[in-house]
Amino acid sequence: MKKKRYRRGHVSIWTYIFVIAIGIIMMYPIIWMFFATFKTNAEIFGSIKLLPEKFSLQSYIDGWNVNGRITYTTFFINSFTLTLVTTLLTVVACSIVAYGFARFKFPGKKILFAILITTMMLPDSILLIPKYALYNSLNLLDSYAPFYLQAGLACYPFFVFMLIQFIRGLPRELDESAYIDGCSEMGVFVRILAPLMKPALFSAGLFQFMWIYNDYTNVLIYVNSVKKYTLSLALRLSLDAESVIQWNKVMAMSFLSLVPLIILFFAAQKYFVEGIATSGLKG
């Protein structure tokens, strides 16, 4: 009881003021962004008014069709296809590899595990150009294949490591009793471990979704044709599209592109927060 009181003791009114003030600073840009989607350029610049003169969905309609032939329908479909397939491949491949590392003593394991850990700190930028050249020679540029390949080959050491740690926390007796019952190695993984790994798989999936959805560098390099553009590239393009930028259209599409992430976050908050807190995944 005394321990609890120690923590409770110090909440003063200043703490609440501080917390709320920071909260406002954190949220204000997003709220402002939402209202800016309804404002004319004249209202956006040189004014601190939060609310627009009038609400009209025109900026959303114009923004959506900004490109004429190719609309944001395409960009949203592209982003979702790329993100969902990559995420699924990542989770499946990384968890199988993690299972191999966490539960078996094969020759060379120590050194391979050390390599895995080291590659966590291998910067992407150093691999960028040779990978581009490699995909170029394999004719895989201007497609999402580079993403799928990397995910399917579990080249996300961070997730592999996180899943290894999670499996190591599961009692081995579970596997052994399943072997006695005649389960195969793959069977143990699919029937015994995978169901228990759900929270970790979910966290990994959420973060991968978020990273791939937000990714700019890789799509910029690998994808060229506009009809394959993801939202990141489409938004960047919208800045160059007109000589005078109509910010409400740009803001409308930017805001819409954030909506899936916001929905996902509120639906799966628990996994986000646990994922960060327990495994050090970063946003």
């Binding site: 909260g23 700019y216 916001i262 976050f265």
Partner: peptide
């Protein structure tokens, strides 16, 4: 609320904002 801006990470939408 504090985490929300990090959710958008390196997103282009936030850079444009």
């Amino acid at each position: 609320i504090y985490y929300l801006p990090s959710l958008f990470g390196g997103s282009i939408a936030v850079a444009i904002l």
